[in-house]
Amino acid sequence: MGEFFGSIYCWFEDFFGLELAEYMWGASSPLSQNNSFIGIGFTMFGISLAVVLIYYYAVNHPRLTNWWGWLIFLGANAVVNFIVGWQWVLKDNYDNKMVGIDPSTNLQVPLNIGESEILCFGVSNMILSILAFIIFSFIFKWWSSNCSRAPF
């Protein structure tokens, strides 16, 4: 699953930076040897699926059976996933896990990853969650009693 999520997130590696992508793969830091894309990807899919199921089956209100009702839940999903992706990576930055080994001195040096790259990763997670929300909507909308026609 790490290869799956990593390849999806790396569609945006030019946006959030190659160095952050290598860190997320677990390749550039001795303090983080695991693939971080797995946890973030499963969390993003889980949140998107939960919001879709809440919209189509828990809320399932006739007033929300149009495009703007669906768009409200899409926006909520996007905001939550932006915050999750941004804070997940920012926590590693604040915990000083984003370090590499200088080959000439064998000392730990901080990776060249700034807060703007971390913010861009949150935006990337948000965009992927919007895509996941749309896909999950087309899968699960058919069995909803009121909202089966939303968004189209």
Rank of each mutant, 00 (worst) to 15 (best):
residue 132 A to S: 14
residue 97 K to R: 15
residue 92 D to C: 12
residue 73 F to E: 05
residue 33 Q to D: 10
residue 11 W to Q: 11
residue 48 S to Y: 00
residue 24 M to C: 15
residue 92 D to M: 13
residue 63 R to T: 09
residue 69 G to N: 04
residue 94 Y to Q: 14
residue 148 S to R: 10
residue 34 N to H: 13
residue 45 F to C: 14
residue 37 F to T: 05
residue 120 C to M: 15
residue 131 L to Y: 01
residue 49 L to S: 09
residue 129 S to Y: 02
residue 149 R to L: 12
residue 99 V to E: 01
residue 50 A to W: 08
residue 97 K to M: 14
residue 62 P to V: 06
residue 114 G to P: 04
residue 3 E to S: 13
residue 106 N to V: 02
residue 149 R to T: 12
residue 90 L to N: 15
residue 65 T to G: 14
residue 25 W to T: 05
residue 68 W to K: 13
residue 85 G to N: 05
residue 11 W to E: 10
residue 108 Q to V: 03
residue 141 K to R: 14
residue 30 P to Q: 07
residue 68 W to D: 04
residue 61 H to G: 00
residue 138 F to V: 03
residue 90 L to H: 13
residue 84 V to Y: 14
residue 121 F to I: 01
residue 134 I to L: 00
residue 119 L to W: 11
residue 78 A to L: 06
residue 127 I to M: 06
residue 22 E to S: 15
residue 13 E to H: 11
residue 80 V to N: 08
residue 112 N to F: 02
residue 43 T to K: 09
residue 81 N to R: 04
residue 141 K to S: 04
residue 60 N to L: 03
residue 128 L to A: 04
residue 22 E to L: 15
residue 96 N to R: 08
residue 50 A to I: 09
residue 36 S to I: 10
residue 108 Q to Y: 11
residue 121 F to W: 06
residue 138 F to A: 02
residue 71 L to Q: 05
residue 33 Q to L: 15
residue 4 F to L: 14
residue 19 E to Y: 03
residue 10 C to Y: 09
residue 122 G to L: 06
residue 8 I to Y: 07
residue 69 G to S: 06
residue 133 F to C: 04
residue 36 S to A: 15
residue 73 F to P: 01
residue 133 F to P: 00
residue 17 G to S: 04
residue 3 E to P: 08
residue 18 L to A: 14
residue 10 C to T: 13
residue 117 E to N: 12
residue 115 E to D: 13
residue 72 I to W: 10
residue 82 F to K: 03
residue 119 L to M: 12
residue 104 S to Y: 10
residue 125 N to F: 07
residue 41 G to T: 10
residue 133 F to N: 00
residue 99 V to D: 02
residue 117 E to H: 11
residue 95 D to F: 09
residue 148 S to H: 14
residue 13 E to R: 12
residue 82 F to R: 04
residue 44 M to P: 01
residue 116 S to T: 15
residue 90 L to P: 07
residue 82 F to W: 10
residue 57 Y to P: 01
residue 135 I to N: 02
residue 2 G to V: 07
residue 98 M to A: 04
residue 136 F to E: 03
residue 57 Y to M: 01
residue 143 W to M: 10
residue 57 Y to W: 04
residue 50 A to R: 01
residue 102 D to H: 03
residue 113 I to M: 00
residue 43 T to P: 05
residue 146 N to Y: 08
residue 32 S to Y: 11
residue 77 N to Q: 02
residue 45 F to S: 07
residue 68 W to G: 05
residue 57 Y to R: 06
residue 84 V to H: 12
residue 96 N to P: 01
residue 55 Y to P: 02
residue 123 V to C: 07
residue 15 F to E: 08
residue 79 V to E: 03
residue 74 L to H: 01
residue 63 R to M: 09
residue 32 S to L: 15
residue 81 N to C: 14
